[in-house]
Nucleic acid binder design. Structure first.
Lengths: 159, 159
DNA sequence: GCCGGTATACTCGGATATATTATGTCCGAGTATATGTGG
DNA sequence: CCACATATACTCGGACATAATATATCCGAGTATACCGGC
């Protein structure tokens, strides 16, 4: 089990965009040099965020990405789901119905097995935590230097 | 993000072993035909459970695996950790310290970033749920037919 | 009939391949800007 | 000097390679059983 790096990248980029504000978009190569990340692959992750409606992209020579909603309306869960996909981490393959001498149409199999129930409940608790934190919460939780650095860098790279 | 199938297999096998009882061990090939799983790979997963102290293995012609502790002393978290490994799912690579014009020795970097904190908290909630459920809980949550089928199959395959 | 030695069949355990997924790269379509030109 | 057409540089977006990991397989070391021969 392993959360892809794109999640971390996406969260940091969203936070950066939140600090910069909506005045003008930031391009993927700029964000990549920002964090020393491979530009093309970061672009791929940002595209996923656009498809999820978290970011909005504007093409053109001064285009780039910006937040599609206000920071208080974007949860960490939204970003994680956008990058990782909506499927649950634990996927029951119903091996309890396999093997010799088992009737898959038995009524006991109408309900999910106890193992799946526990795993789903745990994953729900995980999602609940992530859904309870918005980008606005992260902004206030981070040290002030982080916001300053973001805005400073923005002015710097903007030229 | 995706939990490996070995977790599901390990949990089902542990539950089966709990129902069968400690009177005699069950071999990996037998458990494999049980659930129609690849025997060698299932063996690999069971070995991980042995290394974690969840199962005890006995070699020899009538050997196999059995629970090393009582079902009430084995949590779902134990099994998941044994199969998936102890590392957290989210691994912060500290990209906040990367990029031009950042001093990695700045005091603000002594504390983990807000993103990592949220991800860790969520993962902790996930682990807490899994640690709160033992094999004994699963046994009582499952329908009675499951326990019956396990014992019946055990007698059947034992010959 | 009983005991000891031996061969055997079955077990786990780790080293070795393959498949799938995540990571990384590349190039084309499109757009706002800057430039040059004519009026 | 102003308006317009055009060329351009930069953007996103998706199709195409590579690397890492999960999945699957194989074979060797070891042990309890079963068998066989001797006493």
């Amino acid at each position: 089990m392993r959360i892809s790096e794109g999640v971390e990248w996406g969260l940091h980029c969203c936070l950066t965009l939140a600090w910069i504000g909506d005045d003008e978009p930031v391009s993927a190569p700029r964000l990549a040099t920002w964090f020393e990340l491979p530009p093309a692959y970061l672009s791929k992750c940002l595209q996923a965020l656009v498809r999820a409606g978290i970011l909005s992209s504007t093409p053109g020579v001064r285009g780039g990405f910006r937040l599609a909603r206000r920071p208080a309306e974007i949860t960490v869960m939204d970003v994680v789901t956008a990058v990782e996909g909506p499927e649950p981490a634990f996927r029951c393959t119903e091996i309890r119905q396999q093997g010799p001498g088992v009737d898959p149409s038995a009524p006991e199999f109408r309900r999910p097995c106890a193992i799946t129930a526990v795993m789903r409940r745990a994953e729900l608790a995980w999602r609940r935590e992530l859904a309870g934190q918005t980008l606005a919460d992260l902004m206030s939780a981070a040290p002030p230097q982080a916001a300053e650095r973001a805005q400073q860098r923005h002015r710097l790279l903007r030229g």
